[in-house]
């Protein structure tokens, strides 16, 4: 697993989270900069899914391949679905959905790393 990618994903997610929290506090809907940050995170997650799958195929670690791969590819779905669900209601609650999606990404990311290192 690529540690640089892991940290990039976490850093981007945290930046996006801060932006979302600012929106929540000011009671405004998320604008283009926030969705741009989400898009960056999504691209990183897609790269991670590909890199991670390649790493999984070539590793000798004792990793449950099914679980690891399902985490790897489930993460990719979280932000698009979250953004879609958020945009359906342009209110504070809709913005809060973005926070839920980002927290989910971070939780899955941590879990992914645990799965990888546990097999070392």
């Amino acid at each position: 697993m690529n540690a640089v990618l892991l940290w990039l994903v976490l850093a981007t997610s945290v930046v996006a989270m801060v932006m979302v929290v600012v929106h929540l506090v000011r009671d405004e809907t998320a604008g283009d900069p926030t969705f741009a940050a989400l898009a960056v995170a999504e691209v990183l997650l897609l790269v991670q899914a590909v890199v991670g799958s390649v790493a999984l195929a070539g590793t000798d670690r004792e990793i449950s391949g099914v679980t690891f791969a399902s985490y790897l590819w489930s993460i990719v779905l979280v932000l698009p679905i979250g953004a879609f669900w958020s945009l359906a209601e342009r209110t504070r609650a809709g913005t809060a959905v973005l926070l839920v999606a980002l927290l989910t990404v971070v939780a899955l990311q941590v879990r992914l790393q645990t799965l990888w290192t546990a097999g070392a």
Binding site: S74, V78, G82, W85, A88, E89, T91, A93, G94, A96, V97, V100, A101, T104
Partner: peptide, 16 residues
Amino acid sequence: SGPGRVLVAVYAVFAV
């Protein structure tokens, strides 16, 4: 809708 929308999001994550 409203808080329910957030609730649906969290429930969906847990469902999956």
